[in-house]
């Protein structure tokens, strides 16, 4: 019962902050609301007994990425109210398209009978030990391949950051 209250609280919080990311006028407010949204989602992960994911989420998203965002906003001095104004028909089209997608999603999820769901408390899949086992047994190749991806990303960053004589 208690977890249900927490769930509702976290859901409302994450939805509210997600809307505020888009609705706030100042970029810095958007960034701070985004951080709030990330924390709320991390709370959801804890509720699902996925502690490792929750911690990683807080460290990577709320920690590293948000700091980068804040730096960018600060350095580019974006803290001014100069959002580009879209024409009215674009806004209307966007609302219609997004609203249709939302209706479809709601309809489909209402219709779908979720059966295969396992209780996260009994499977213990989100714990570090089990996650590590799966990562290094079943998903070994993708895991190693992602290291190639990081190497390549570094090469790409070096390419773009190289000093050039003009």
């Amino acid at each position: 019962m208690f977890t249900e209250y927490i769930f509702h609280f976290l859901s409302i919080l994450s939805l509210f902050s997600a809307v505020m990311v888009l609705a706030s006028k100042k970029p810095i407010h958007s960034v701070l609301f985004l951080t709030l949204a990330f924390f709320a989602i991390a709370g959801h992960y804890v509720l699902l007994n996925a502690q490792f994911l929750a911690v990683v989420h807080v460290i990577v998203y709320a920690g590293a990425i948000m700091v980068l965002f804040l730096f960018t906003v600060m350095l580019l001095n974006l803290n001014k109210d100069e959002q580009s104004q879209k024409p009215m028909w674009v806004k209307i089209m966007a609302v219609i398209a997004g609203g249709m997608l939302m209706l479809t999603l709601i309809g489909i999820l209402r219709k779908y009978d979720i059966q295969s769901v396992q209780d996260p408390m009994t499977t213990q899949i989100g714990l570090v030990k089990n996650l590590g086992k799966i990562l290094y047994n079943d998903y070994f190749v993708p895991f190693e391949l992602s290291s190639v991806l990081f190497l390549t990303a570094m090469v790409g960053a070096v390419l773009l950051g190289k000093k050039e004589q003009i």
Partner: peptide, 29 residues
Amino acid sequence: IGMNYMISSGDFLMFYIGLELATIPVAAL
């Protein structure tokens, strides 16, 4: 390499990582 892993993947996760490895470096290029 990414494309090669992508086209012989037997799993959606593998497919996705291969796809990303095939796309992200092209942006730098």
